[in-house]
């Protein structure tokens, strides 16, 4: 490689390296601000802001969804399997909202209840036909009754 090209290559790579380092440092510095949501455990530990709204994320606890009759209000519990927080929401729920689904709610804590102004459902990145989902559910059910039937083998 002739010296002119070599110099250009070195300068270009130096610029690229400097920008990469600067970006990495700013992302590292912004780490806290880039947190999109808090889990119930983090809220319990007092990490979530008390004064202004934040996002609470977790799984909709089984058997906790309760619709208040004649209103759009839904009450449910968000859990990360360690801590749970009761949530109240008035409005239309997204299609993917269901029990056991990852859900992100925006709102603030009012007397120990999280009053949500927005509910978003998170997709679990799994795609399968309904028949397969049913088969898996059936297999799980079958495995649950005879506790230690066989090791593995489930789809």
């Amino acid at each position: 490689m002739n010296p002119v090209r070599k110099r250009r290559l070195v300068i270009t790579l130096l610029i690229l390296g400097a920008v990469a380092v600067a970006t990495a440092l700013s992302i590292f510095a912004l780490q806290r601000n880039m947190t999109y949501l808090y889990s119930p455990s983090e809220v319990d530990a007092g990490k979530a802001p008390a004064a202004h709204p934040f996002r609470l994320g977790g799984i909709v606890k089984e058997g906790s969804v309760h619709r208040v009759p004649d209103t759009l209000t839904t009450e449910f519990v968000i859990t990360d399997r360690f801590q749970s927080i009761p949530v109240t929401y008035t409005g239309i729920l997204p299609d993917l909202f269901r029990v056991g689904q990852s859900t992100i709610t925006t709102g603030s804590m009012v007397n120990g209840r999280f009053v949500a102004t927005k509910v978003l459902a998170k997709h679990d990145a799994t795609y399968m036909p309904p028949q397969v989902a049913q088969a898996i559910a059936k297999a799980k059910e079958a495995h649950r009754i005879p506790k230690a039937a066989q090791g593995g083998g489930a789809p």
């Binding site: 880039m34 239309i92 997204p94 299609d95 993917l96 927005k118 978003l120 459902a121 997709h123």
Partner: peptide
């Protein structure tokens, strides 16, 4: 329809 929002400022 799925998440419940057109846009959100996630990473």
């Amino acid at each position: 329809p799925m998440w419940g929002t057109w846009w959100t400022w996630d990473a």
